[in-house]
């Protein structure tokens, strides 16, 4: 045995629905070099210790995206996660299947919900008749056009972002970071004819449920930065259709609200988002808050130098003055 190995304990989630009463964690200890990827450790467990361990993998090189799982709570690729770094950071290695998808067996999940969301955004070009595909030839784009979405095609559909997303966990209406990043890729593709349709549809199909928590961007092994592409989609959706939903009304309301005084008028923003009638369901709990914090209903004191803000809005906000 090489001398640079250390004992590494893996606490692995074990569960087969229909057979096991409840999930359990099973400990396996191996002597491994700190540079060993978690996936290699798991394969050695399966091949040398316990052939019943279920896991999914293929390329072992961070290309196929098959081995995403939760390692010490973080959704990531097991093939590019060295055991030494995990031990250093957490003092242990807990391996669990991805979240937000039902477990099939042990570390294997059913990815059907993830792929269903992906299909839902129509991940293919609807060719613009004004820019037809030349017969038998590629349809070229300029480098500047390609630059707008050069990072989203890096996605390997590993679903680590989907597993990490709290909006996916708590609201089935949210399509998830990967589907939205892919949607962005088609929305900015100059050859696509469906841009307007896509933006209008997504406003009512979950776009505004993103929490901006950036857990997807942290989880992504390919630096696709889904949370930032979702932000781009929001701005484009408002530009395409105006503020039609609570989410977009809140964003646009905040923007106009700030122009008035430089600080937020909390009550006015609620009205801008919901409208007067829409505020009614908020009222009973709103009153409870108001009793403790009467300032929520007060007009805030404007900042000094408001004219500077107005100048900034005039220069940079095309909607300014409307």
């Amino acid at each position: 045995m090489p001398s640079d190995t250390v004992p590494v304990a893996f606490d692995v989630y074990r569960y087969q629905p229909g057979r096991d009463a409840a999930p359990r964690y099973q400990r396996y200890t191996l002597d491994l070099s700190p540079h060993t990827p978690v996936l290699t450790g798991l394969l050695r467990i399966r091949d040398e210790v316990d052939p019943s361990l279920g896991l999914r993998y293929s390329c072992r090189s961070a290309i196929c995206g098959s081995c995403a799982m939760r390692i010490n709570s973080k959704s990531r690729l097991a093939c590019e996660t060295p055991v030494g770094e995990e031990l250093q950071r957490h003092g242990r290695i807990v391996v669990e299947p991805m979240a937000n998808q039902p477990v099939v067996r042990d570390l294997v999940v059913d990815q059907a919900p993830f792929w269903q969301e992906y299909r839902g955004i129509e991940p293919h070009l609807r060719v613009d008749p004004r820019r037809p595909m030349p017969e038998g030839k590629p349809n070229p784009m300029t480098p500047a056009e390609v630059d707008r979405f050069h990072d989203t095609p890096r996605c390997i559909a590993c679903a680590a972002c989907y597993s990490a997303c709290p909006a996916v966990a708590d609201d089935p209406a949210f399509p998830g970071p990967m589907a939205l990043a892919k949607l962005y890729r088609f929305v900015v593709d100059p050859r696509d004819a469906a841009r307007q349709d896509r933006l209008v549809r997504i406003q009512t199909e979950g776009l505004w449920l993103c929490l901006r928590c950036h857990l997807c961007t942290e989880a992504c092994p390919k630096d696709v930065r889904p949370s930032e592409r979702i932000r781009d989609l929001k701005e484009m959706a408002i530009a395409a259709q105006g503020a039609t939903e609570h989410g977009s009304r809140h964003a646009v309301g905040f923007k106009t609200n700030l122009r008035d005084a430089g600080v937020l008028n909390e009550m006015k923003l609620v009205r801008q988002t919901y409208g007067l009638l829409g505020m009614l369901p908020q009222l009973p709990h709103g009153l409870k808050i108001w009793r403790k914090k009467p300032e929520v209903a007060r007009r805030p004191h404007p900042i000094e130098g408001r004219e500077e803000l107005e100048g900034i809005y005039r220069a940079l906000d095309s909607e300014d003055g409307k």
Partner: peptide, 15 residues
């Protein structure tokens, strides 16, 4: 002024 709280960023990044 207020920082925009992430909401103005959704409506107008450069602003």
């Amino acid at each position: 002024s207020c920082c925009g709280s992430g909401f103005i960023d959704e409506a107008n990044e450069v602003l």
